[in-house]
Structure formats: structure tokens, C-alpha cells
Amino acid sequence: MSYYFAIVGTQDNPLFEHEFGSSKQGGDGMSRFSEQARHMNQFIVHSSLDIVEEVQWGTGQMYLKCIDKFFNNYVSCFITGGNIKFLLLHQPTTPVSTASSRSSTSIAANPTSPQTEEAIKSFFIEVYENWVKTIMSPFYRVNMEVSSPTFRQRVAAAGRKYL
């Protein structure tokens, strides 16, 4: 499974993006997006922002689960108190078919199963903790791009740990 993670600010502006692959089930942590898909990823994630705006007023929860699907791409969302959106696009390596998903229970094969939801939730919560630390910096103003290499390491570590 390949993942594309983006943090989007209050003005729908990108603040941070990171691409990684599954580390579970012998994955090497590398993403398998084609060059063309990389451009599509940004487009898909951006287009799901409309749905986020609809869903966010229906529940007070921060984790909004899987909110959008575009062919074989699934978008999960987490929204912070300050209206910053964490968007994770996950793309199973093989398209999910009803026959094969029954045989395998791995996260990679079931993008909408409860186990996957939980794993993504844990990932988001860890990123959120680091996000709060980022905004605690007195030099950070709202909607500033995050360029800290430590933050990127932390996100990558959370991805390795849970996804």
C-alpha cells in the first residue's frame, strides 16, 4: 500500500506533504505511486476538501475516518481544533475485489476495514501530538508551511509504526 499524507491549512493551502509506503507485512516503506499518480494525488486530496467541509459540522470528533474514494484511492481525514486538516490518501497495491478481501485481513488489502481505521487513527493521533508541538513554537503563525526536518522524521516514524 502506498500513502500520501498532506496537511492543509485554513485557507486550503498546503502546509506539509509526505509520501511513504506500508511497512507492515514485509513492506519496505517505499511508496509505489507512478509519476503521473503523484500529480493526481494532490488533485484528489484537494478535491476531498469539499467533503471535509460538509462532514466536519456533523460530528465533533476530530477523526472523520474515510471520507472520500476515487477509483482505487481512499482519503481519510483528521481535523484539528484550529481547522487544520490532515489528509491521508491510501492506495492499495491491488484493486480491492470482494473475493480477495475475504481471504486477507491485512491493513493493505482492506482500506475500509475497522482495523485499518484504527491504524490510521493511531497514526493521526501521533501526528497531531507533534502538530501541537509545532504550533506551540512562538515563531509559528497560522498557515505557515512546516519545514522542520524533525517534524518530517516524526511523521515518517508514525507511518512506520502504524501503517
Binding site: 465533533g60 470528533q61 476530530m62 481535523i79 481544533g81 484550529g82 493521533i125 501530538e129 504550533i135
Partner: peptide, 21 residues
């Protein structure tokens, strides 16, 4: 205020970690 909002939400226990609607 902007920073405090997220810090306080983070410190809430997970069950009551709700954004004001």
C-alpha cells in the same frame, strides 16, 4: 488563543476530545 485551542483539545481525554460545533 489560536494555539491554546489546540493545546487544550490535545490535553482533553480522548473520549471528550470534541471540537465545538
Amino acid at each position: 488563543g489560536l494555539k491554546l485551542l489546540d493545546l487544550l483539545l490535545h490535553r482533553e481525554p480522548t473520549r471528550s476530545q470534541l471540537r465545538p460545533l
